[in-house]
């Protein structure tokens, strides 16, 4: 019987091909970060810094794509099948919606990272035209007759929802829920355009030249002033506003499917590192790390902040009362007023 010298050769070649393909797969990992409107620039820089760190630690190249939009719409996309590895959204309620409607994220997501999975905080401030011609300094100034306010739709935008709750919370402190409802009704009478996301509102205000005041995330406000010209806009910090806590979470079902859990978890944990916190501060998000916040204290004026939990009993209650179909927002806002 003839020997078959080709058999070990084929086995060797097969093994080499196997090893090569395995090595290539091992050398690269892809992540998709589905985020809300104003975080584009933040995550461009975070991705770059994390990629370098991950490469150094594991030898893997991490290729991170970003998707941005109104927080509620982004959550809906993930529910409908957008293969996000991580979500970095504007509201805890939006992540809860993913949990509830698609089970793609474990229900205990908020306990898996520090500070209820909130690496940075922010607040809602006012952006006004240069010199603040209408002298808008506090929330009451926004409801004066003739004042035009620009803010996104709280039904679709995290920024819009924070702004709405900030307005309600401030008014409530003065006169209870009845006064708050009256105040917010007047406020939204002065809102002629509801964009679906915070970035859209910024464009409406800054590039379409609509309105006297923009209710914006603090980071979005600072970026607008810095990039569009300090000679065009001023930022007004009201005495009191809301503590905005945009959370992050790994999309468990997707990372298990993509086999990207390790990188996805490391990516979110990176946000809590000194480097990640410093990048957040650079992009005008308030770090949760007290030391990093202290180093950057000058760029974050003191505002008396109240939380959703304390004022509204948590996001579930706030969402049900204010933003559910037929809720308070639907009651006070009449399109076409």
């Amino acid at each position: 019987m003839k020997r078959m010298p080709s058999l070990p050769l084929a086995a060797g070649l097969g093994l080499a091909v196997l090893l090569a393909s395995g090595t290539t797969a091992l050398a690269q990992v892809k992540l998709l970060n589905v985020s809300y409107d104003p975080t584009r620039e933040l995550y461009v820089e975070v991705n770059k810094a994390f990629g370098a760190q991950w490469k150094q630690q594991t030898g893997q190249t991490v290729d991170i794509s970003q998707s941005h939009g109104g927080s509620g719409k982004q959550a809906r996309s993930v529910i409908d099948g957008l293969e996000a590895d991580v979500v970095t959204l504007g509201l805890a309620a939006d992540i809860d919606a993913i949990v509830e409607k698609s089970q793609r994220i474990a229900p205990d997501w908020a306990k898996k990272l520090p500070n209820h999975a909130t690496p940075f905080t922010s607040t809602v401030v006012f952006v006004v035209r240069k010199g603040n011609p209408r002298q808008i300094k506090e929330w009451d100034d926004l409801v004066k007759p003739g004042t035009i306010v620009v803010t996104p739709n709280p039904k679709t935008s995290a920024g819009g929802r924070w702004a709405y709750l900030a307005a309600w919370g401030v008014a409530r402190q003065k006169g209870g829920d009845a006064a708050a409802k009256d105040y917010v009704t007047k406020l939204y009478k002065n809102v002629p355009v509801l964009d679906s996301g915070a970035r859209g509102s910024t464009i409406t205000f800054s590039q379409r030249n609509i309105g006297h005041a923009l209710l914006a995330w603090e980071n979005e406000a600072v970026m607008l002033v810095n990039e569009m010209g300090k000679d065009k806009f001023d930022i007004v910090y009201p005495t009191s506003s809301i503590l905005a806590e945009p959370p992050v979470a790994v999309v468990d079902r997707n990372v298990d499917k993509h086999k990207t859990r390790a990188a996805a978890e490391a990516y979110l944990k990176f946000l809590y590192t000194d480097e990640g916190q410093a990048i957040g501060a650079k992009h005008h998000y308030r770090p949760t790390n007290a030391a990093i916040l202290g180093k950057n204290a000058s760029q974050f004026p003191k505002v008396k902040l109240f939380s959703v939990d304390d004022t509204f009993g948590g996001w579930a209650a706030a969402t049900k009362a204010h933003f559910a179909d037929g809720g308070l927002f639907d009651q006070i806002y009449k399109p076409g007023w």
Binding site: R40, E41, S196, G200, M223
Partner: peptide, 18 residues
């Protein structure tokens, strides 16, 4: 501005990034 997927690397655009 919504639902645009971009790579986290370079963004060749001379306008303000925001």
């Amino acid at each position: 501005p919504e639902n645009m997927t971009t790579k986290g690397s370079s963004v060749p655009d001379s306008r303000p990034p925001s």
